[in-house]
Amino acid sequence: MADFIPIAVSILFHGLAMAMVLYLISVGLSVTMGLMGFVNLAHGAFAMAGGYVLIILMKKQGWPYGLALAAAVVICMLASLVLERLLYRRLYGGDELDQVLMTMGLIFVSVGGATFLFGPVAQSLDPPAMLRGQIHILGRDFPTYRSFLILCGALLVTALWLGLERTRFGAQVRASVDNLRMAQTLGINTSKLFAIAFALGSGLAALGGGLGAELLSVGPTYALDNLVYCLIVVSVGGLGSIRGPFAAALLVGVTDTAFKYLAPELGAFFIYALTMAILLWRPRGLFGTAS
């Protein structure tokens, strides 16, 4: 029993770090699905792009970490805006299957494009010297980078929550998730709103992909590999909410870490079974508002 606490702390710590990354790369998906009812399977491709831009800018151009990360977010947001106006917008309110085909196509293009540009091997992130090594908290050593990750995640969650609850834009988003037609009737420019929400979501995904590059390695098949976990986070959390995916990411991150550590022979079995049980119990997810 003596070594129970260190193990529990370690699982919680690494689970939390995982949860933050999962949250960042999924929350945009939850909002766009809730807002536009759009099944954007290619959301993970923006996270991958974020990871690649960060790593390439640091390695090839020698940019500092913070600047490269900011550039990755901005570049991905701009790219997503272009894609939204060019492709996504045409399928809003359209047939789900055409959406699936188009976004799967985007995933395939991202796989092919990333392999062509950066090769088939996953890239690794070299964090700056400040974030390497261990940090000493309460008589225990924790990896500095992951502590940083958790801190960033916590700050972002708070900022997002405040942004959605306290700002005018947040109120418009919430109104549109609740009732799109009514929001339009009230004069909210939903087309613009969609574009901004989409770009914000993609930017967050890019941030998650960049920050989490140490945890989820950045390779060409990133969007495919992480698709299932993203979808689990979104569906268990509930569409169109900010705290739902957070709760779900915590649940998935911590349980997944725990099972990989304590019962690796079970693999991902438990996560899948848990997802199924939760969705049977609450078909709209834990905090779902949009149907």
Partner: peptide, 14 residues
């Protein structure tokens, strides 16, 4: 293959 079938799918879907 991935790249071109992907482009084809995007075109097809849109």
């Amino acid at each position: 293959w991935y790249f071109w079938i992907g482009l084809f799918m995007i075109f097809d879907g849109v």
